[in-house]
Design a protein around this nucleic acid. Sequence first.
RNA 1: GGCGGCAUAGCCAAGUGGUAAGGCAGAGGACUGCAAAUCCUUCAUCCCCGGUUCGAAUCCGGGUGCCGCCUCCA
Length: 467
Amino acid sequence: MTLRLYNDLTRKKEPFVPIREGEVAFYVCGPTVYDYFHIGNARPFIVFDVLRRYMEHLGYRVTYVQNFTDIDDKMINRAHEMGISVQELAERFISAYREDAEALGVRRPTHSPRATHHIDDIIALIKRLVEKKHAYVVDGDVYFDVQSFPDYGKLSQQSLEDLQSGARVDIDIRKKHPLDFALWKAEKPGEPSWESPWGRGRPGWHIECSAMSTAMLGPTLDIHAGGSDLIFPHHENEIAQAEAATGMPFVRYWIHNGYLMIDQEKMSKSLGNFLTARAARGKYPPLAIRLFMLSAHYRSPINFSEEGLLQAKSAAERLRNCSLELDEALRGKTASGHSPLVEEIAGHRQAFMAQMDDDFNTAGALGSLFETVRAVNGHIKEELLPSRAGLEAARRFLDEAEEVMGVIKAPVADDPDRERIERLIAERDEARKVKDFTRADALRDALASEGIILEDGSQGTRWKREI
RNA sequence: GGCGGCAUAGCCAAGUGGUAAGGCAGAGGACUGCAAAUCCUUCAUCCCCGGUUCGAAUCCGGGUGCCGCCUCCA
């Protein structure tokens, strides 16, 4: 089986073939660090992190680059509002980003370049575009000349005319074409600026991604990903800038995730209908948030709702319970020799991989994972001793799935309250022995209110925390 | 106006020509002091109309409804 990905450039699923065998140059548009990111922004971060993990699992060496936009209009305005420098603002929200991303199980990118650390790369790229007559200078601003790039619109499948006719852009008479966009913006008083061949100024938004991605990954990337709302104009512009400058294809596979909706509307900062990732992870377990994001195909819209998150939470608990159950069974007595469970697990694992290979169908893959759960639970419940080989096969597959999706294990951390909890459980067991169920249930309820769940089994009482 | 997406059980959702995965919730049963967890059983003909086909949720045509991009936006 080979991995196939839907490529927005060709509008087809295509076998994934990297430029350099065994390696993947992968770029994802990162956040503008002027505020906390919301749960809609979190979708690409989580979903593409899983794609990265899956590719690593397949054995690819993935160089995963996700930028921080730390200079633009929003940064400047917010810094003014807050009475701090743009740089301070950036530092603050880069740390916030990292805390939230880590809490959501998103792995650190290989590189996290910041626009302000790559001004030289950006200037060099603009210079090249000016030299090649793909850009022109007006009063210290530099604009990209869209009419000089015949392929403009190839990603969004729109001609210049189409784009222009629906455009809601203010006409700027200094521009040759209304869709020409700023590569460099001349300095304004009170704004951060850098020296350049066109005078002091700062980079436009689109240029940073072209400059940093090619600087770190070479002229042609294997994968460039981001939200669908970036297709036009951001990614279209990135293509124009990079290809006009290098004359080489910029990206082989363009991948875009669907929106996160709320009340049938796209969640977005400007609509004000957002929930920050920070608030969301205070309200719902990260495992549930991840499972929720992976429960639909990455290109479909997904509706954020209380009910949806609670469903995901219950489902995540089922996965976690199975994993705990499996560990316990492995610590106990087991039978040697063959068991059909081994083959059954192998089948589910194969299905899981096939789903992931098919344009990264996480929802389908989760189906196989849950079928594994049922098989394992059923096997453990049987009267006979569970099969060592079967349990081990299951453990290996669950670990593998966990490595890729990160939806099974709750964060472990030794529980600081362990002694106290176990003392209370012992007390409850005493009460149960003498049939003082009122007292036993009161103790159980007290623990439950702290999020501690008790399970009475034939081997005694077990406890676990809510996920 | 241009471009694109979606419509599958109470809810979420996979499936894109061969007779409907999975999850959540519900019902019945097993287990339990009661729960919890778990297991077993049960729960849909795929928005509408027409067509192609031996056969369609899946293809084609026509509707209806919802969403998005064309401005900053993941």
